[in-house]
């Protein structure tokens, strides 16, 4: 194997793997995001933040190829790209009668021919993904019986089981308590470090991701800018993005976000 490739076949150096060149995204005649120019790098840990309705999910759809650009080009620079999408937990049917293992096994479907079931190798991937996500012990339980954090882990495990090399997570910590938020973010951080996958995470919970991501893409109705986390986490810049007074401080080495005088 090429030393510059990781186990999942992707280049490990910080080279562009997806490039947006003058891309506009929208629905019909309505343009939501205009003239996007940025790269997603191999082994990137990119956070996408912005106020509600700014176009974060639209951008995600563009990255995933679910939404074609109205102008410009999105170029995949690596032939080995495989997306692992972690959908918002709320968008998944909570009462569908499937076990955690059955849901994770869906990640293997793109590798299996029609009418065929999973083979031993596929189940090995499923079991490994369940283990990485820390949900092996609840694999045989129904999805509906799991806690919010466990459900999120199952969805992450499904993305891992697909042998994805780019994890795309849409609001993975929504509706979680502070402990749950931290546990999920730590899991994503570990996956990024140990599995060496590129991670793109969308969140409107600023405090949640600034201590984890390497780069931050800030989406507003008028602007789009990708910066290193150090550049992006200045109070002045974030105040502009969210159109609200924001300060960024540090407590025991961790960044904290204070909005309008109260902790965000």
């Amino acid at each position: 194997m090429d030393k510059k490739q990781n186990l999942r076949g992707m280049k490990t150096t910080n080279q562009p793997i997806i490039s947006f060149n003058g891309v506009s995204l929208g629905y019909g005649k309505k343009i939501v995001l205009n003239d996007l120019n940025f790269d997603i790098l191999s082994n990137d840990f990119l956070g996408i933040i912005g106020p509600n309705g700014a176009g974060k999910t639209t951008l995600l759809k563009g990255i995933l190829g679910l939404l074609k650009p109205t102008s410009g080009t999105i170029t995949a620079r690596d032939p080995h790209i495989k997306f692992g999408y972690v959908v918002q937990r709320q968008f998944v049917d909570q009462v569908f009668p499937l076990t955690a293992r059955e849901i994770v096994s869906m990640g293997r479907y793109r590798h299996i021919k029609l009418g065929r079931g999973l083979r031993k190798g596929d189940w090995d991937h499923v079991n490994h993904a369940l283990e990485i996500a820390g949900v092996s012990s609840v694999a045989c339980q129904t999805y509906r019986s799991l806690s919010g954090g466990q459900k999120q882990r199952v969805l992450i495990a499904r993305a891992l089981a697909s042998e994805a090399n780019i994890l795309i997570l849409d609001e993975p910590t929504n509706d979680m308590d502070i402990k749950g938020e931290t546990q999920i973010m730590e899991l994503i951080k570990n996956i990024h470090a140990k599995q060496r996958v590129t991670v793109v995470i969308v969140s409107h919970l600023l405090h949640n991701i600034i201590n984890y991501v390497q780069r931050l893409a800030c989406v507003t109705r008028d602007t789009f800018l990708v910066q290193s986390i150090e550049e992006a986490t200045t109070g002045h810049y974030l105040s502009e993005v969210f159109d609200s007074p924001i300060k960024v401080g540090e407590i025991t080495g961790k960044k904290v976000v204070i909005s309008n005088g109260s902790t965000d």
Partner: peptide, 23 residues
């Protein structure tokens, strides 16, 4: 339904993720 069983269940459960897996 035998041929497409797993795909039918997947798209009924979570169509968006199924699309991202080229289903």
């Amino acid at each position: 339904h035998i041929i497409f069983r797993k795909e039918f269940v997947f798209v009924s459960f979570d169509p968006t993720t199924a699309q991202t897996l080229k289903i």
